[in-house]
């Protein structure tokens, strides 16, 4: 029996292998302005000629991707491959230009750390702000607050304004808040490389804990070792196209051969 309530309750269950996300022939095109000198004069000139100083960027092109419950999908690709664009389309932030995306469950996104945070407020107030922004209720945050504070390892600094935090402290608190949300489908974009080595490992373990049969995880990362360690499927995007999808080791191998970074150890340093 598949329950498809949109609620974020922990009790919502999905049969393993039921469809979580279905991306069907999705294309995404942006129009960007390429005015070299965005002056009024140039604008007025182009008005008369009906010529638009714009360039169309194909961020995604005919992407087909099904993600099932129980899957941990890693998404890899070089910069500008369309990974973040795809995540934004799946989470409903940006509408696709072509195609269709179906989502069967509640989605939580961890696309950037500290979304909704206000640096003037204390860490404590920001736990509430960030949690509410991520779609948690006040009662849920009350309940989870101690766990969040513990996980962030901030100690007394939790009651100091966040503008006094170091970037590592900021990232730690942001990750702690985000990792508490328990959605059906969790999308994480480059958020694992936060803090020092100790915290990186801790956050990686947290992600591993979130791998359950009734949840789908999508991780975007450049850290191949992490992807290979955590994911049971990998999708490789290149210039908006889905190049390969399947067994992590195989797809990563193909990707490395394609980009010729196989031998370089520097490419794998970021965990």
């Amino acid at each position: 029996m598949i329950s498809l309530s949109a609620s974020k309750s922990l009790s919502s269950t999905h049969a393993a292998h039921a469809l979580a996300v279905s991306v069907q022939n999705v294309g995404l095109t942006y129009t960007t302005s390429i005015d070299n000198r965005p002056t009024l004069k140039a604008r007025l000139k182009s008005l008369g000629h009906g010529k638009k100083h714009t360039r169309v960027v194909n961020a995604l092109n005919q992407v087909n991707l099904d993600v099932h419950y129980g899957t941990v999908l890693g998404v890899i690709g070089s910069n500008g491959a369309g990974k973040s664009s795809l995540m934004r389309v799946i989470s409903g932030i940006v509408p696709p230009s072509q195609g269709r995306v179906e989502v069967h469950g509640s989605v939580s996104t961890l696309l950037a750390l500290g979304v909704g945070f206000n640096p003037s407020m204390t860490g404590r107030a920001n736990v509430y702000l960030g949690g509410l922004a991520a779609g948690m209720s006040r009662a849920e945050i009350d309940q989870q607050f101690d766990a969040i504070a513990d996980f962030s390892e901030l100690g007394d600094a939790i009651d100091a304004p966040m503008r006094t935090y170091s970037s590592g402290m900021y990232a730690r608190l942001a990750f702690s808040v985000a990792a508490t949300v328990q959605p059906d489908i969790l999308i994480v974009d480059e958020a694992l490389s936060t803090g020092d080595a100790h915290f990186k490992e801790k956050s990686l373990n947290r992600i591993k804990e979130l791998r359950t049969a009734d949840r789908a995880l999508i991780l975007v990362s450049h850290a191949m070792a992490t992807i290979e360690d955590v994911c049971n499927e990998v999708a490789w995007l290149h210039k908006g196209k889905l190049m390969a999808r399947g067994n992590p080791a195989e797809v990563i191998k193909q990707y490395r051969e394609f980009t010729n970074t196989g031998k370089s150890s520097a490419a794998n340093e970021d965990v």
Binding site: L4, L19, I90, G92, P96, S97, R100, E102, V107
Partner: peptide, 12 residues
């Protein structure tokens, strides 16, 4: 096939 919770299609 279950009905999706959310469907995203091109912006109109």
């Amino acid at each position: 096939m279950s009905t999706p919770v959310a469907v995203y299609e091109p912006f109109r």
